[in-house]
């Protein structure tokens, strides 16, 4: 795709988003009342969609190993609760995660491209991506260069995503827009569509290092972009809100958003993920409550 046609197709997506309206719609869907069997189903689904994440300077092999164990068996002794979708780590931790997760069905996702700021030369980013894939990352979470995007250099954003996608090879690519820095919903929609045009497999809200991270309205705007992109091109793109999703209630609201915007087809870990860490235990706690009728103390859920 050359410069002109990329920009042209951008225009055909009707880029205006009304902030008040988007917030209202997201709040209305979040108000759905999900109870009983429906809630149990949602909890299991949510667990299977988690990208269990640790992205800290103090991450160590011990920490990542433990997190991987939790990812494989979130709730000890429960066959009902599935494993999470992936473990998301820094490049240095890819190898240990890969060996800890071998044969489990849980993917290794690595952040890359000078996460979280993206302020590095393109060549280094490409090398980094190639390296993490070589070390065994199944999924790459890249960040776009927000500075370039905000300068109006959309072609740069397009080329950047396209180059990283090529460097990914077989690994699948999640493009982090860092919506907290893009600020407006018009920007979010525009960045979503550019990323999808350039070959993103997933679009993702945030690094988790900038506030606000994932919000319901931002996710709604991105889901609508995915829906419109699918309608125009037939290509199915996934969505990952990340950061700030802490409770079962939050997670269920996100699932309702997906169900009512994109439909059942997207309610699978192949197409929807939630980047989170503390969410998992809240889901387990709510699951136990649905089974037994009472809330169990936090001490009964493992902290890894």
């Amino acid at each position: 795709m050359n410069i002109n046609s990329a920009i042209n197709s951008l225009e055909s997506f009707h880029l205006a988003v009304d902030e008040t309206g988007a917030k209202e719609r997201a709040a209305s869907i979040a108000g759905r009342s999900i109870k009983k069997e429906s809630k149990v189903h949602a909890i299991k689904l949510a667990v299977s969609m988690i990208d269990l994440t640790t992205l800290e300077g103090k991450d160590s092999e011990g920490k990542v190993y433990a997190l991987c164990q939790k990812a494989i068996r979130p709730m000890d002794g429960s066959e009902e609760i599935p494993h999470v979708a992936a473990v998301c780590v820094y490049p240095n931790m890819v190898k240990i995660a890969k060996s800890a997760l071998a044969g489990s069905g849980v993917n290794v996702a690595s952040v890359a491209t000078a996460f979280p700021s993206g302020q590095s030369p393109m060549k280094l980013k490409i090398d980094e991506v190639k390296r993490v894939v070589q070390m065994g990352a199944d999924e790459v979470d890249m960040v776009i260069s927000r500075g370039e995007f905000l300068e109006g250099n959309y072609q740069y954003t397009y080329d950047e995503v396209k180059a990283i996608k090529e460097a990914c090879g077989e690994a699948h690519l999640k493009v982090i827009l860092e919506t907290g820095e893009l600020e407006t919903y018009d920007n979010v929609r525009k960045a979503s569509i550019i990323s999808m045009l350039a070959g993103a497999d997933f679009i993702k809200t945030s690094t988790g290092k900038v506030q606000p991270a994932a919000t319901l309205p931002v996710t709604l705007v991105m889901l609508e972009a995915i829906r419109d992109f699918y309608n125009e091109t037939g290509k199915i793109i996934g969505m990952k809100p990340a950061g700030g999703i802490k409770t079962t209630k939050d997670a269920i609201a996100y699932l309702c958003l997906v169900k009512e915007t994109l439909g059942e087809m997207w309610l699978t870990p192949d197409l929807f993920r939630m980047g989170a860490s503390s969410l998992l235990n809240d889901l387990l706690m709510q699951y136990r409550k649905e089974q037994t009728g009472v809330y169990q103390s936090a001490d009964y859920f493992t902290n890894d």
Partner: peptide, 11 residues
């Protein structure tokens, strides 16, 4: 179009 991404890359 089929779903291009599988969450289960390692079988």
């Amino acid at each position: 179009a089929s779903v291009r991404i599988s969450a289960n890359g390692n079988g």
